[in-house]
Design a protein around this nucleic acid. Structure first.
Lengths: 188, 188
DNA sequence: TCTGTGCAATGACCTAAGTCAAAAAAATCA
DNA sequence: TGATTTTTTTGACTTAGGTCATTGCACAGA
């Protein structure tokens, strides 16, 4: 198993080598080109992803046609269109490949089988959900309490790589401001 | 075990009677008066709650001193200050008793012990996390794509009881609008 | 090298929703 | 029952940030 992938898994739960071995058989590597779409709106999300190189973002299109970025997986990172993955309903969110990306995926059936059969994997999934929840909680908090400028500054503190690496368009939609507003914020 | 509590648990996972029996020994009933505080800001949240009568809300105070309501537990309902409960760190959110309330609580230690020992309880916790996540996802979506009026109308569709039962102040902070704005929205 | 396409920067203007203040209505209490 | 507190409504005004339009820039393809 690739070292970076191992680190990614171990970051969440202290997997033993045997379980890692079992897990690694379920993971399929995949290469994706920048600007391709990993999951379209309306598709059921059937995979959970481990991004070892590149960048994938979760986003959706509002009724007004604006693109809204919900989450950014900048390698090394893991996640998926979680709501659709959980419910196995068509996804409102889609997965957009922001940069040339290498990732490993595990399909829903394997994921939930591991969840039943491997206590450490169940623990892993629980942790993932807990992390996803607390992350979102912070996101809501920053949306309702911070100004556009403060949200930008917070991102600059917490995850400057996102600002450095990605286009204004993506960063703006992640911060929930208009592109022009972000441009103005940056120039101060 | 009280019927309403049983229904609440069974709504999430199809518990068998034996497990329900085991669970019921961990639950402690409690009565709370309107306007009391179940958990203060800064306290570690040590309990998970099942509200069988009344109403509890999760909220926090922004830097500007505004009260922000994150979640409303209108009976029958379950939840807690989840971030603090998960991390066992001091809670940013507090739990406010909106109406005279009857609830059952299970403490962190018992909760996580059940999580280890009772597969159905582990399933229950997983479902709770999944539900909490998807709920928040919808909340973020409505915050970033809907106008104040649309958020109000959505709540009126999805959960009119909140609007009917609770004060404007609470509803406004839940919808993330100023009290005055909500009042104006209502009069249209 | 030219040319098209998309991203970034800047200016002018607009609007949804917030703030502040005061009156009106409703709930609480002695 | 009236007095006091709390909540709701309404009006006038402000503002953060959005929208629209224009220009400059950079990279990709022929």
């Amino acid at each position: 198993m690739e070292e970076i992938l191992k680190q990614l898994l171990k970051y969440v739960v202290d997997f033993d080598d045997r379980t890692l071995e079992i897990v690694s058989h379920q993971l399929k590597p995949q290469f994706l080109r920048k600007n391709s779409v990993l999951l379209s709106q309306g598709e059921v999300c059937n995979d959970f992803y481990f991004v070892t190189e590149g960048c994938i973002r979760t986003c959706f299109i509002s009724k007004e046609g604006d693109e809204k970025t919900r989450y950014i997986m900048l390698s090394p990172s893991m996640r998926t269109a979680l709501t659709s993955f959980i419910t196995q309903q068509p996804s409102f969110e889609f997965l957009d490949v922001v940069e040339d990306t290498k990732l490993y995926s595990i399909c829903y059936a394997d994921f939930y089988r591991l969840n039943k059969e491997q206590p450490l994997w169940a623990q892993f999934y629980q942790k993932i959900l807990e992390m996803a929840y607390t992350f979102q909680n912070k996101k809501i908090e920053s949306l309702v309490t911070l100004s556009a400028k403060q949200r930008y500054e917070q991102l600059l503190m917490v995850n400057p790589r996102i600002i450095q690496t990605l286009s204004n368009k993506v960063v703006a939609s992640y911060l929930d401001v208009a592109q022009e507003t972000l441009s103005r914020l940056k120039s101060k």
